[in-house]
Amino acid sequence: MGLSKIWVLAEVAGGKVSAASLELVSAAARFGDEVTAFVVGEAGGGVESSLAGFGASRLVVITGLDSCLPGSVAAAVMAARAAGDQPEAIFFPASYEGRDAAGRLSAKLDRPVITNVVNLNPDNGSLVAEHAIFGGSQIALSRFTAGAPAIFVVRPKSFAAEENPRSITTETVAAGDIGAAGAVKVVASHVEERTGPKLDEATVVVAGGRGLGQADKFALIEELAGLLGGAAGATRAIVDAGWVPYAYQVGQTGKTVKPNVYIACGISGATQHMVGMKGAKNIIAINKDADAPIFSIADLGIVGDVQKVLPAVIEAVKVRKG
């Protein structure tokens, strides 16, 4: 037995629904009869058709508070509608806005929230969540006893986005007064430009960690990533150290990647990092410490100095490519 109503927060950037949001809509369509997607801000026809294509049957577009943080806006509107519509479950992507919205909504409705969800299984009209604990080394199976709605924050790439077209009805609502959170305004947005494929979409990811020794050696990571048509990634340690911007971070607090191949250079393999990359199809690790945890999940491990091995790999790849 499935669920009758599931809500999903769908995030839109540059006129497109995020991949993580479509994964959730797709999962919701598998578990529930009626799937309602909530979008904050303007949603063009492309947004509506893509949500319908992956299984959303209703779309609620929230307008009116464009410069507010979308997570707070979504939580306020969802809280106001929950009593009337009575969704059994609400899915949020594990993004900045998703986590804000889930936290605010949880407190507004007095319902607990389960985060770091990596899978959901229907069980007798409710959902059992599999969520990653201890940096993803163990999986806990949890269910709510609090009554509907069950609030889940789901990690990206936990579900496949599968086309499942449904007819959709769209409703536009004004956000109205959202309380203290409504006074928070975004006054400017800055984009940190990167070339090449996006980190969480690239089929090849070359990532660097502390073992690179110094910040300027990250250029080697960028160079190999460029040669292989991939994206450069980084550990939290070197992001915190200011070597590269946060947008490069792979792991628990950064991006989740599932490329064809992940090349970990000078990365020891903290659990917080591995939870973001161990879904890669192939893993190559280069690290000078033979006991580094990264070798326990690598298909090919090279125990060696990354400052020597990496330039040699780059030269050899250049020769190959002519």
Partner: peptide, 14 residues
């Protein structure tokens, strides 16, 4: 339960 473990592959000393 333990998360699905990835089997370690080949490790080579440079």
């Amino acid at each position: 339960r333990e998360a699905e473990a990835r089997a370690a592959g080949t490790v080579v000393v440079d």
